Amino acid sequence: MTDVTELADRYIEVWNETDGDRRRALIAKTWGEDGAYADPAAVSNGHDGIDKMTAAVHERFPGARFQRTSAVDKHNDRIRFGWELVAADGNTIVAGVDFGTVAADGRLASITGFFGELAEAA
């Protein structure tokens, strides 16, 4: 059985790793070969796509760090957790919720990210 909190924390660690070699090693440990990521700003597939996407975030927001802001919920092969991206000055750049699927080998198969709070019902 996968420790989903450890998996989510390693996923956050991928986002925070600025050294390309260490980041690629973390991606291989955390993501399945065909891992798929989608949020309102990016879509990436496979280890190379995920690596390029995370490197681009470091270029756009130098010194910023991701952190998990909630417990990790799990049912079946699904997980969800809150997160935020915090600038070097301590201000939150963006926050959201990620929903993921965990593959049989315990690595991530997919993550779908949403930014911001849920909209109120009409």
Rank of each mutant, 00 (worst) to 15 (best):
H58D: 09
Q67E: 10
G100S: 03
A8Y: 07
N91C: 02
W31E: 06
V72P: 15
I79Y: 10
T5E: 03
T30A: 08
A95L: 00
D105L: 15
R24C: 01
V94Q: 00
D105H: 11
T69Q: 00
F99K: 03
K29C: 11
V94N: 01
A71P: 00
W83M: 11
P62K: 03
N45R: 14
G32W: 00
I12A: 09
E33G: 10
F66E: 11
N45G: 09
A104Q: 14
L7M: 13
I79H: 12
R60L: 15
G90C: 14
G35Y: 03
N45V: 15
V57N: 03
V72D: 15
A25Q: 11
T112E: 08
R65M: 12
S110E: 05
M1N: 12
A122R: 01
R23L: 01
T5F: 01
H75Q: 04
D77N: 08
E17G: 06
G106D: 04
R80V: 05
E17Q: 13
T18I: 07
G96W: 11
R10L: 02
P40Y: 09
L85F: 07
P40I: 13
F81A: 15
V14N: 00
G100V: 01
V14A: 00
V86T: 10
A71G: 12
M1P: 15
A55S: 04
V4W: 07
V102L: 13
S70C: 14
H75K: 15
G46C: 03
A42M: 08
A41N: 08
L85E: 15
F61W: 05
H58E: 05
A55I: 06
V86F: 02
I12S: 08
G113Y: 06
R60F: 14
R80W: 15
V57I: 09
F115S: 09
E117A: 06
A55H: 13
A8M: 07
K74G: 14
G20V: 07
D39A: 00
R24G: 04
A8H: 07
E120A: 13
K74L: 14
A87H: 08
V57C: 01
K74C: 12
A104K: 12
L85K: 10
G100Q: 07
D39Q: 01
A25M: 12
D39G: 00
N76E: 10
A36C: 02
G116C: 08
T30K: 01
T54K: 04
L118N: 03
R68W: 09
S70F: 15
K52V: 05
G106T: 07
A95Q: 09
E17F: 01
N91D: 08
I111S: 02
R10Y: 03
A38Q: 02
M1D: 06
L108Q: 04
R10T: 02
D21K: 03
F81V: 13
T92P: 13
D51T: 05
R107L: 08
R60V: 05
E6K: 01
H47C: 11
W83T: 06
A121F: 12
D21L: 07
A28P: 08
G100N: 02
V86S: 07
D89I: 04
W31G: 08
P62Q: 04
I93K: 03
D19C: 06
V14H: 06
M1G: 14
A121W: 12
L85I: 07
K29F: 04
G63C: 14
Y11F: 09
A103E: 10
A122W: 00
Q67Y: 00
I111V: 11
A28D: 15
E13C: 05
H75T: 01
F81C: 04
T69G: 08
N45K: 14
R23H: 04
R24I: 02
